Computed example of a mutant assay.
Amino acid sequence: MPRAIFLKKETSMFEGKVAIILGASAEGGSGWEIATALADKGARVAVAARREAGISELARRTGGIAIKCDAAADADVKALVDRTISEFGRLDIAVLAAGSPVIGGICEIGDDDLERATAINYYSLVYFLRHVAPVMADGGAVLALTSLSATQVSPGYAAYAAAKAASQCAIRYAAIELAPRGIRVNAISPGLIESPMARAVIDIEALRHAMYKEIPLGRGVLPTEIAATALSLVAEHSAITGQSVVVDNGMSLRRPPFPEEIPAEAYQHGATSAGY
């Protein structure tokens, strides 16, 4: 009997809560696993991404709704939030898992790539906060996925890392601005995530070896592990706000591999999908 009561409590941990997860179209990816975990714990979820196919299937599995949304388009993000409120009547949790690595050093990256890196990895967070905060229930939670590259130099990712660093800075400011309403704002800063996006790294032996040798626990982080941390940060009992929580199996204790340590052909093939 006590065990049954415990399981019921765990299952209904987010009962009655409504969550948006933006960036959830890749099956088995971090956004997908966060949405699944929230739904499993009782939340009603609105899942969103630029690609409809993935989120339609995720919505079917979680009993939620799927909304096409480009995280780098302010109007799309507003429409996502408006639709969620229209469907569910409230918003308690908002997770921004969208992002995209953009390759290029400071002296070589073109303006188009610089703008793309900034739009998807920083402007998206500003748009997200701008539209979710005013309608979020007091005591709610906002979470964004950033990147270890924001604090650990990863050569070749200058624009991407700078945009993620800007997001981590914005998280701290938003935490202060929204604190009077009890809304907590945090980030997860992952190292290498063993997600569908990272298959190009994991499947190439030279790249895999270069990555793993710099990770004390010897492997990347699983999306389910990202989801477990996410749930702890958005839960009502959390006392954490304004933080970028590193989830990396110890990668930040060392460093990402440098390009010269990776065969050129392997680096070019897999670098855009590193996912950190």
Rank of each mutant, 00 (worst) to 15 (best):
Y173W: 13
S56L: 07
A210M: 01
H131F: 07
R83D: 03
P190F: 05
M197S: 03
I21T: 14
G140K: 13
G220V: 07
A158L: 12
A26K: 14
E225I: 09
V81G: 14
N121F: 07
E194G: 02
A271T: 12
L38S: 02
H209Q: 10
L231A: 06
H237T: 14
L91N: 01
I67V: 15
A159F: 02
A266M: 08
L222M: 11
D74M: 06
R219Q: 08
P134R: 02
A166E: 00
A198T: 12
D70P: 09
A271S: 14
F258A: 12
K78I: 06
A230G: 04
A39P: 02
V126A: 13
G182I: 06
I20N: 04
T118I: 10
A170V: 10
Q243A: 15
R130Q: 15
A48G: 07
P196D: 00
T229S: 10
G250H: 01
A174W: 09
T151C: 12
S30R: 04
K213S: 14
I204S: 07
R181P: 12
L192A: 09
I183D: 14
D92K: 08
K8R: 13
R90F: 06
A73Y: 10
Y157A: 05
R60T: 15
R219D: 00
P259C: 05
F14H: 04
P2D: 15
F6V: 13
A24G: 12
K17F: 09
K213V: 14
G23W: 03
D113T: 03
K164M: 02
S273L: 11
E33Q: 11
C107R: 13
I262M: 04
R254N: 15
I20T: 09
E205C: 01
F6R: 14
C169L: 06
I176V: 15
G54M: 05
R3N: 13
V246K: 14
P256K: 03
L192P: 04
T272D: 15
S100D: 15
A117D: 00
L207M: 08
G139Y: 11
P190D: 06
H237E: 10
G23P: 04
H131E: 12
L91C: 02
G99E: 08
D76Q: 03
L222G: 09
